[in-house]
């Protein structure tokens, strides 16, 4: 260890390893429906796509979790995004490409991708 900067570099690199374990209220949560219906409809690649995007962009404040069936199996894979202080956004018929766009537009720039939401389908 030759300098503080070097220590800082290791710290930043390692932070994503432990961030998950902090009890926080401020983080964004991405919840993927992973019941039998979700998995059958391809939720796993979607979940992995979210993880990869988040890692690529080094987003420390986002956690990805999964949940069970919420009863709308025909819309699976369903992904809900919770941004603190805002209404949750429910995305349906998700795919890996769509996941990448949700990360870029919704999670980073706070612009929900309206065309993928369940509201768009109803219209």
């Amino acid at each position: 260890m030759k300098s503080l900067a070097e220590l800082q570099e290791i710290r930043n690199r390692a932070l994503s390893q432990v961030n998950l374990r902090k009890e926080r209220e401020d983080g964004i949560r991405v919840v993927v429906g992973m019941a039998t219906c979700g998995i059958a409809a391809g939720a796993r690649p979607v979940l992995n796509a979210f993880l990869q995007e988040i890692e690529k962009r080094n987003l420390g404040n986002v956690t990805v979790t999964q949940t069970g069936c919420i009863g709308m199996c025909r819309y699976e894979p369903i992904v809900e995004v919770y941004v603190p202080g805002q209404d949750k956004v429910t995305y349906i018929h998700m795919s890996e490409d769509k996941a990448a766009r949700v990360v870029a537009e919704h999670i980073i720039n706070n612009q929900p991708v309206t065309e993928y939401t369940i509201g768009a389908e109803a219209k």
């Binding site: 503080l4 220590l7 290791i10 710290r11 690199r13 390692a14 390893q17 961030n19």
Partner: peptide, 14 residues
């Protein structure tokens, strides 16, 4: 050791 550094380890020594 990386996990210790991630939770501010060795910052005090620095």
């Amino acid at each position: 050791i990386d996990e210790y550094i991630a939770v501010d380890g060795y910052q005090a020594l620095g």
